[in-house]
Nucleic acid binder design. Sequence first.
DNA 1: GTTCCGCATGAATCGATAG
DNA 2: ACTATCGATTCATGCGGAA
Lengths: 303, 303
Amino acid sequence: MRVCESLHSNLNITPPGKEIIAKALLGDCKEVLKTIEDNSIDLIVTSPPYADSRSNTYGGVSPGNYVEWFLPISAELLRVMKPNGTFILNIKEKVVNGERHTYVIELILEMRKQGWLWTEEFIWHKKNCYPGKWPNRFRDAWERLLQFNKSKKFNMYQENVMVSMGDWAKSRLRNLSETDKTRDNSKVGSGFGKKVANWLDRDKVYPTNVLHMATECSNKNHSAVFPEFLPEWFMKLFTKEGNWVLDPFMGSGTTIKVAQRMLRNSIGIEVSKEYYEMAKSEIKEKELWLLEDQPVYETNRNW
Amino acid sequence: MRVCESLHSNLNITPPGKEIIAKALLGDCKEVLKTIEDNSIDLIVTSPPYADSRSNTYGGVSPGNYVEWFLPISAELLRVMKPNGTFILNIKEKVVNGERHTYVIELILEMRKQGWLWTEEFIWHKKNCYPGKWPNRFRDAWERLLQFNKSKKFNMYQENVMVSMGDWAKSRLRNLSETDKTRDNSKVGSGFGKKVANWLDRDKVYPTNVLHMATECSNKNHSAVFPEFLPEWFMKLFTKEGNWVLDPFMGSGTTIKVAQRMLRNSIGIEVSKEYYEMAKSEIKEKELWLLEDQPVYETNRNW
DNA sequence: GTTCCGCATGAATCGATAG
DNA sequence: ACTATCGATTCATGCGGAA
């Protein structure tokens, strides 16, 4: 059972249970990260400033210096992340002199030298990407979501991001259920609870490594468009309630706000005072929640 | 006006005009490429054997040797391509020891040292990707389509791949329409005979750098699934009628077959005698066509 | 003729087993 | 310890046969 926020405020109940913490820290993450304990973070999810963009807020890292600038930060991230944790890096290379710049792929190679495992590359397909026309290229409708890990054994809760099948497939599946039952019987069932879960998830399929999420058109002042879907999806996939989530480039606080809503502890770091204040105003630093079983999050979206 | 093949054969007319050539060459492309003239090819589009796969037909290049194996070939490709031509490389890295292998991104860096410009990376989103379930990763539903050029000034005919606004808007609005869209994609309509005027009246939009194409599930014996959409789309985008197209890993001849249908001259190279024969049987080495204005290819697909 | 259903099958990947 | 092979897993698609 999950005690929701409205219950708290409306009924003025303080439930028994653990505190959920959402910390916003002001400063350069390269320095601030040093104050975080070793092996303490379950999920790092962030969208760092892209090279040469947002220069007014982040000082404009040039493409040529990007790898050199990022490596000390990724070294700290490697230190603070738990051995079974995951680091999701949302990034896309800019076009420089008519070419895609190579700083992202160079970064992958250098981070592997630091000890990171490059486990997977998800694609964020932005259906409503920014309009525009150029003589020699089309609109850029995708970004990289690089998954790095510290070890091959990391936590992953795939069933939390399963998506419902389309109607067409569903109607087909119903008549196949007898066959499927037989198939299930042949398996060595591990437990009662799992059987039930299998039955409930019968209409659902696992997603692929291509995510379809429309970019959020919010009016917030943060220049990087980092929709709530992104941290939410990866929190479902890689963390449980009460786990710790870190965003070293917090911006206006999307990640820690989502973390609080999903009952994950979180730390966000932001160098710009303006964004830091914005983020702080939208979260409560500590909240009490009753933690029990994992809630089942309904997902109708076409992820 | 375009004189179609059926007209020729049915009416036994030999039109005035240029020959369209489709050459299939047998041998290792590293060697065979040396027989091709400098600066003679407008578009190279190919899907080389992936590392460690198709080992029975190509001798199985291991991930660790992939870059070393490919570089002499890409050097030849650089030589034979026209200065304003384009090279499209369809490739995806395998998982090795739980990690995405780095041979593809290393190849990009090495090809740039050879003189290639890494202009763009298209994403091929494969809705019907290979099934499977693993504890630590989802199904892989995308491949890279790397665009390389010799100079910043290359030929690009964007208007030839525009998609109609109606279909674009429709696909945007529907949430669960992936199945339907894919279903539409699979209908390979020739478009011949439909009134072009209808389409010219409508608003059209340019596509993005994310392509949606289901892999063709045909009965062909070639193990690599290289759907006709792929070379067709890039031929529309980067070549005109009468231009020269090259596929150094021809396989069963998809590229040169499409080239012939689209009135482009083509050369395909294949090391396997079996595939070479298969390709040769499906094309006519020389055909006469009346070449005039560029035909407008209708596109209902959601590219 | 349509529509619907059953079935085979892929550019895959993991973990266990065998040499 | 390291490599090679095998079985199990899973789902979108086209095709053929049936209603």
